[in-house]
Amino acid sequence: MERWIWLSSIPHIGPVTQKKLLGAFGNPERVYHASPSELKEIGISPRAREAIAAARSLEKSKRILDLVQQKEIWLLPRDDPLYPSYAKDVAESPVLLYVKGQIKPCLPSVGIVGSRSCSNHARRAAEELSARLSSMSIPIISGLAKGIDHAAHTACLANSGHPIAFIATGVDECYPKEHRSLYEAVINEGVVISQYPPGTVPAPKQFIQRNALISAWSSHVVILEANVKSGAMTTAHFARKHAKKVFVFISNDARFRQGTNCLINQGIRPYHSFESIEKEILPIL
């Protein structure tokens, strides 16, 4: 697994180039041994070729692998059958994920995201939606953040559901720290997933990538309140890009009216209650 870790952590080499390299060479071992001329031949940019050449050492990968083993973290490479086929080819999906808990990939699966400072109306809607879906054994995907994410996964756990949480830190880190009990419950009953190695601390662009993975693993995405510039809006953007079925909660809270109207104007369907999504879900079960 050292070379999977190596490939996934080369600076300036993102998921698209990672997958291009695997497509050309077949496995990380052959990528590791590829010559500069071979890399140039398949269209790898000069900057990326330089990054690969500068990262030939496996010392970093060995240190990460030691941490993974010490902290009982599972590695999910792209060629593992548990890596969902509907997620692995999404442009933003990396070739390696770090996992704590148990993966049960299945469709449908619903991403529920929204504002950290949500209204009580939206919180109750998230709880109701998550409870109904969990009673149907449909996984609930979210980001372990405050507000809507917390409500969705708490209701999922209360109804014996399968929570899937994507985070923007290493899976050995709980962020925010006050969600420690929820984080541990999700690991016990579902799974926490990150593309970042253990010890990784939060950074703004990592939350954007986290939001992309929430969309990638979801068949449907429900946005329950979002400001125009927010993580939930970013998730909605990725969901449209990934051709997911997206819904937006019609909030009575004036703070979120501009965000709601923006999404409605983009053609995203309104979410009023569970019945708004039920007819989309049932044919897939």
Rank of each mutant, 00 (worst) to 15 (best):
M1R: 10
I5A: 00
I5W: 01
W6K: 07
S9V: 04
I10P: 03
H12M: 13
I13W: 03
I13G: 06
Q18K: 02
K19V: 03
L22V: 04
A24C: 06
E29D: 15
V31G: 02
A34L: 08
S35R: 13
P36Q: 12
E41L: 13
I44W: 05
I52G: 01
I64N: 03
L65V: 11
L67N: 08
L67M: 12
L75T: 08
L75H: 05
L76P: 03
D79E: 15
D80I: 04
L82G: 06
L82V: 01
L82K: 10
P84C: 10
K88C: 03
D89G: 00
V90H: 14
A91C: 07
A91S: 15
S93Q: 04
V95N: 01
L96Q: 06
L97I: 10
P108R: 10
S109M: 13
G114P: 04
G114Q: 03
S115K: 00
C118R: 11
R123K: 14
E127I: 13
E128H: 13
E128V: 15
S130F: 10
S130T: 08
S134G: 03
S134V: 06
S134W: 05
S134P: 08
S135L: 13
I138Q: 00
I138T: 01
S142F: 09
K146A: 11
H150I: 09
H153N: 11
A155V: 12
A155Q: 07
S160I: 06
S160P: 00
G161I: 09
P163S: 06
P163K: 10
I164R: 06
I164S: 08
I164E: 09
I167F: 09
I167L: 08
A168P: 00
T169P: 08
Y175Q: 10
R180H: 11
S181I: 09
S181E: 15
L182S: 04
Y183G: 05
E189H: 15
E189T: 13
I193V: 14
Q195I: 02
Y196W: 13
Y196A: 01
P198E: 12
T200P: 07
T200R: 05
A203W: 11
A203G: 08
P204S: 09
K205Y: 15
Q206F: 14
F207Y: 11
F207R: 03
Q209P: 04
L213H: 09
W217K: 04
V222F: 08
L224S: 03
N227T: 11
V228A: 12
K229P: 00
S230N: 06
A232G: 03
A232P: 02
A232E: 09
T235S: 13
A236E: 04
H237Y: 12
F238H: 06
R240V: 15
K244M: 02
K245D: 12
F249H: 10
S251W: 02
R257I: 10
C262N: 13
C262P: 00
L263F: 04
Q266N: 10
G267R: 00
R269G: 03
R269F: 03
P270K: 09
H272Y: 15
S273E: 11
E278F: 15
E280W: 11
P283G: 10
P283S: 12
I284P: 00
I284N: 03
